[in-house]
Nucleic acid binder design. Structure first.
Lengths: 184, 184
DNA sequence: AAACTCATGTAAAGTGTTACATGATTAT
DNA sequence: ATAATCATGTAACACTTTACATGAGTTT
């Protein structure tokens, strides 16, 4: 349900068309809450029906500019302050870790070291993004917070993966049937 | 598409009914790849149609026990070794951070400190889980890896949120319309 | 007898992805 | 003229969640 609040939030900054909004998603929210064209156009319609947006202007090529309404702003504010963010529920990489015991130790280690490399690359990509968030506007301030989180998380992931690879000793393979331990 | 491979992976350990499998998901994969009853029963049917599972036994109350086939094992192995895990794409909390500039600094700080507390609690919950992963079976080994990752990630999240709260200074609020900075 | 657990499945609604389809306007 | 960009929308498919629906066997 966060897509609609992301759209409301972007339109709370300033009015935009579906096309504009899509670019905003791609430029600013790509790593946090990506959205596709069908989603954006569909959601704009629903938000307008709900009275949270209005078509504030029409332009060439059928362009419709949407602006947030009072009700929309209230709903956005409610979401931002009262709805607890849901933690990510699924992790594809960890799912594999759970089954790594079915591989020979060398292959399990290789998997983990590959994940370490991926995290390291991601970390460097974020590092390269740092100059973009210079400045003192509020978007720059909060962009820096998000970036710093990314830097710390990728570093943690990288270090964990290196550590995990070292934990794997050559020895007896998979256990077989019995009760399983929980995956953190 | 990982649900089916999670099911294959669990059945690779040993045969189980839909009911058993559901409990396995709840006990062992709850934090990594949760699944509901409808999903499990539906997927078991599809996997059987695809030839990756067979009904290995039938019991009281219409119980059907599923076992993985050679083809299923091959597919599972292919997934485990050849398909790169997809990184998590969405983060509800970070989405809010992106919009935190629309709140008064005090409220933004409160949000971040609340996130710090949540991460700290999660960290402690995982810490309490540590004894469960004692032992030297492969499930214990790989369970420990996942647990350690959880511990490191929640600690990183907690520390970041505390740091981020301190970054927010009282001052000029939201910028308004112009081009946005990317959210890391 | 009642309550609990085991055990199966279907249906509907919401969300997300990919592909299809069309056309106007602007820049080269 | 041609190509690129702007701009909208629909359709089909996949996945997830929640709720509905039913009944057999076991324990107290």
């Amino acid at each position: 349900m966060s897509l609609r609040h992301a759209a409301l939030g972007l339109l709370a900054e300033c009015p935009a068309s579906g096309y504009d909004l899509l670019k905003l998603f791609d430029v600013s929210l790509a790593n946090v809450w990506p959205a596709t064209q069908s989603q954006v156009y569909g959601e704009l319609g629903r938000l307008t029906d709900a009275g949270w947006l209005t078509v504030s202007a029409e332009g060439p090529r059928g362009r419709k500019e949407y602006a947030i309404t009072e009700a929309g702003l209230a709903e956005f504010h409610r979401w931002l302050t009262e709805v607890e963010p849901a933690p990510p529920r699924r992790n594809d990489m960890l799912l594999r870790v759970f089954f790594l015991g079915r591989l020979p130790p060398a292959q399990a280690r290789a998997f983990l070291l590959r994940q370490a490399r991926i995290a390291a690359e991601e970390h460097e990509n974020l590092e390269a993004l740092k100059p973009v968030t210079q400045g003192d506007g509020s978007l720059a301030v909060y962009g820096r917070l998000a970036l710093e989180r990314g830097l710390r998380m990728t570093a943690t992931q990288r270090d964990w993966a290196v550590w995990a690879a070292a934990q794997i000793t050559d020895g007896a393979p998979g256990a077989g049937c019995s009760d399983a331990a929980p995956a953190g």
